[in-house]
Design a protein around this nucleic acid. Sequence first.
DNA 1: ATAATATTATCATTATATGATAAATTGTTA
DNA 2: TAACAATTTATCATATAATGATAATATTAT
Lengths: 260, 260
Amino acid sequence: MSGFERYNKILNLFSEQRNSLTVAEISQELKVPASTVYRIVREMVLAEFIESAAGSYFRLGQAFIKFNRIINLSDPLIQAGEPFLKKLANENPIPSTNILARLFGNKVMCVADFKHSTFKNNTSYQKGRLMPLLYGATSRAIIMQITEKRLNNILNLEGLNNDLQKEIFIKGLDQDKKKGFCKTEAQVDIGLIGFALSISNKKLGIEASLSSIFNISDFRPEHEPSIYANLSSYALLIERYINKIFIDTEAYHNNYLNKD
Amino acid sequence: MSGFERYNKILNLFSEQRNSLTVAEISQELKVPASTVYRIVREMVLAEFIESAAGSYFRLGQAFIKFNRIINLSDPLIQAGEPFLKKLANENPIPSTNILARLFGNKVMCVADFKHSTFKNNTSYQKGRLMPLLYGATSRAIIMQITEKRLNNILNLEGLNNDLQKEIFIKGLDQDKKKGFCKTEAQVDIGLIGFALSISNKKLGIEASLSSIFNISDFRPEHEPSIYANLSSYALLIERYINKIFIDTEAYHNNYLNKD
DNA sequence: ATAATATTATCATTATATGATAAATTGTTA
DNA sequence: TAACAATTTATCATATAATGATAATATTAT
């Protein structure tokens, strides 16, 4: 264990379920002596990436709140997409939650969400939460973009090493690719149905998706056309906006450089 | 430069204004050769603390969104305080923005905010943004809690090294301490007036404040009593709730340990 | 007050980071 | 498409910092 990995491993011990840890626990998890962990933790406390809680426990620190704000203000996907989620929710024919998600390692992370006030259920998708890559329309609209090789790696990692299963999964994905959208029922949350479209920008390395999630009980087949119409028009809008941000940023950088 | 500081310094080069940087720029800022910076940046990209953007620029990475979520779910101040901000806003006699803030180094960071729909102005206080420690009611209600020695250090750091100025500042603070609340006009944003109370929990090391911010043009002296009544009842409520969380967490930990 | 736990300090040893340079890759321009 | 420039990765000897066992304090609980 060396370099940044050492720090990252400690941070990744913290989770929604286990949000505070003692040095003894960290030491045990990482199989590193307590004296070493104390030194490392102290460094991170100084930088406010960790803070001490009651009873010799430690928590994640406030620095994350600070950096999270900067990301929200600078991430092109969030900047371009978040403002449209509310509009999308308002135009959908039935109550919905609407989500922007992107690839995060071999998981999918929601980076923006808007739940319409009339949508009473809760989805598992929440900003910052990691979700499985192989289930749900939100995720499918993302993996349909990645290369075959990478997909294969991920399928192996996720335990889909049975060749037949793999083939079936890839075939289904290819069909979705041709159609240009994804639709899944109850793959992530029971009682919910999801529709998703890809959002991408090669230059910015964005592999994302825009999705609308509904209660199955609200949903009727006749809703589908307007759901697709909404999703596809907003997906296009967001892609264009991302591109605009890209152009603007480039211009800004050029301008900045010329001023030297 | 060594240990976590090396990574932290790079992360802290990113700001709202300068949200993407090239390796050359980082190298220049930190006075570290590009070959070294490339190695460090690569490590951080792997951990998703940094991500590559277009045109050889780098941005903060998505890991912050993930960790920010965990903090929001686990920070006792946010957990205890955030739900009450909306209620406070609704009960205030005039349109307001309501803020929970805490100490962050020698700055003050807003960790939760709720702007009432009728409040049209914008405050500088936004979740995750660092604000000066010496101006505004929000900040005063925090520094009035810290030890004299620490305050002195901060006053020196902030350039208040003139003894007379210092004395005046401390006297004003002492008066606020006696009154038990802070009120400032236009110290941070012109046209706004702020009222704040301290929130603290020694065991959890929380030094924070709850504040309501109004438009000066909306404000009349007769509003003051109800403003104070609201603030003080919610501040008390939040402190009690923090304590409840503390007790619950302790019980949880004990329970967890006994199960081994 | 005493015991138990948590935290910091010390220091010889080991392992890793560093940075100069070269090589490779990628992007740009003619 | 070739030639060029910029970006990124690889290499490696050397300097530097991390490690962890142990001892010394500090803090907390009994």
